[in-house]
Every structure is written in structure tokens, then in C-alpha cells.
Amino acid sequence: MKKNFVAINYIDCTEAYRPRFEELFGSRAKAIDTMPGFINMHVLRPAKEGDSYLIVSYWETENAFKDWTKSEAFIKGHQRGFEDLAKAKAEGRPAPMSSSFRTYEVIAE
């Protein structure tokens, strides 16, 4: 059985930042789409208030995912969000969003 690698980014946004976050993904650079080993991605809006957004990306291998996180394309793809975080910090405000990655291996389909 072919095993694939899945990375899930759990994103927590302030209520005020949610529209901006969704705008960023709606107009994303699609830099990830051309990365070697990338298969697909889903951006999931929480159905329940207070839950995290999920960014679920599917990769051929863990190394392909790691290469993405170290790439210029990664920086380009996240540039606007990084700018929002830097602006909040410069203004002495709390970060409007935070994220944490968890990774998985597909064992059944």
C-alpha cells in the first residue's frame, strides 16, 4: 500500500481577524501547488465558534513537506500573514492568529 504524508496546521484567529484570514486563503498565491511531492490541500472553516481552522495538506513524503516549509515558495505563500503578525507586534497588539502543525501518515483510505 502506498503511504502518503499529511500535515495539518491548526490556526486559531481572533474573531476580528477571521474575515482577513479567509480573504488570505481565498486569494492565496498557490505557491504550494507547484512544489514537488504536493498532492492536495483543503482549508476547513470551523463549524463551531472557538474551534480552529484546519489547513490539511497531502504530500507524497514527509521530506516533500519539509522541503516546502524551508522553501522560498513557503515564504511567498505566507508573506501577507507574516506581515499582519509583524504589524500587530509593532503596534503592541496581540497576534491576530496562531498556528501549530501536526503531522500524520495515511494508513487507510
Results as ranks from 00 to 15, higher is better:
residue 63 N to M: 03
residue 59 W to F: 08
residue 66 K to E: 15
residue 1 M to D: 15
residue 71 S to M: 10
residue 90 A to M: 11
residue 46 P to N: 08
residue 89 K to T: 05
residue 93 R to W: 06
residue 8 I to S: 01
residue 81 G to W: 00
residue 100 S to G: 05
residue 91 E to W: 08
residue 35 M to Y: 02
residue 90 A to F: 10
residue 95 A to Q: 04
residue 62 E to C: 06
residue 77 G to W: 01
residue 69 T to D: 07
residue 78 H to M: 13
residue 102 R to F: 12
residue 20 R to T: 13
residue 32 I to K: 00
residue 24 L to D: 02
residue 54 L to Q: 07
residue 94 P to Y: 08
residue 70 K to I: 10
residue 51 D to S: 09
residue 27 S to W: 09
residue 3 K to F: 14
residue 106 V to E: 09
residue 62 E to M: 11
residue 60 E to N: 14
residue 33 D to C: 11
residue 20 R to E: 04
residue 19 P to S: 06
residue 16 A to P: 07
residue 23 E to T: 02
residue 1 M to Q: 14
residue 63 N to L: 02
residue 88 A to P: 10
residue 22 E to G: 08
residue 109 E to Q: 10
residue 67 D to R: 07
residue 82 F to T: 09
residue 13 C to D: 02
residue 24 L to I: 02
residue 70 K to E: 15
residue 13 C to Y: 00
residue 100 S to V: 11
residue 104 Y to I: 07
residue 100 S to D: 05
residue 62 E to Y: 03
residue 93 R to A: 15
residue 13 C to S: 13
residue 86 A to T: 14
residue 88 A to I: 14
residue 26 G to H: 00
residue 17 Y to M: 15
residue 23 E to M: 03
residue 67 D to I: 09
residue 83 E to Y: 05
residue 62 E to L: 07
residue 107 I to G: 09
residue 23 E to L: 08
residue 18 R to T: 15
residue 51 D to C: 06
residue 50 G to Q: 07
residue 24 L to V: 04
residue 86 A to C: 10
residue 79 Q to A: 15
residue 76 K to C: 10
residue 95 A to N: 07
residue 64 A to V: 06
residue 61 T to Q: 01
residue 107 I to P: 08
residue 2 K to H: 12
residue 47 A to I: 12
residue 2 K to Q: 10
residue 16 A to C: 06
residue 81 G to L: 08
residue 30 K to R: 03
residue 49 E to T: 06
residue 95 A to R: 00
residue 44 L to Q: 13
residue 58 Y to N: 04
residue 9 N to L: 08
residue 89 K to V: 02
residue 52 S to V: 05
residue 74 F to K: 02
residue 99 S to F: 08
residue 83 E to L: 10
residue 89 K to D: 02
residue 69 T to F: 04
residue 99 S to D: 07
residue 15 E to H: 11
residue 92 G to F: 07
residue 32 I to R: 01
residue 96 P to E: 05
residue 96 P to W: 01
residue 1 M to N: 15
residue 21 F to K: 01
residue 22 E to P: 03
residue 67 D to M: 12
residue 78 H to W: 09
residue 42 H to T: 12
residue 31 A to F: 12
residue 87 K to D: 12
residue 38 F to C: 04
residue 109 E to M: 09
residue 65 F to W: 07
residue 65 F to L: 05
residue 8 I to A: 02
residue 65 F to I: 02
residue 93 R to G: 10
residue 86 A to N: 15
residue 102 R to A: 14
residue 87 K to E: 09
residue 20 R to V: 08
residue 41 M to F: 11
residue 70 K to V: 04
residue 14 T to F: 01
residue 31 A to G: 14
residue 59 W to C: 02
residue 75 I to C: 03
residue 105 E to R: 04
residue 95 A to L: 09
residue 8 I to K: 00
residue 76 K to G: 12
residue 20 R to W: 00
residue 61 T to H: 02
residue 7 A to G: 07
residue 87 K to R: 10
residue 44 L to F: 12
residue 22 E to R: 01
residue 84 D to R: 04
residue 46 P to L: 08
residue 91 E to L: 12
residue 6 V to E: 00
residue 85 L to C: 06
residue 31 A to I: 05
residue 27 S to C: 14
residue 66 K to G: 07
residue 41 M to P: 04
residue 24 L to A: 02
residue 99 S to C: 11
residue 26 G to E: 00
residue 25 F to D: 01
residue 76 K to E: 15
residue 43 V to F: 15
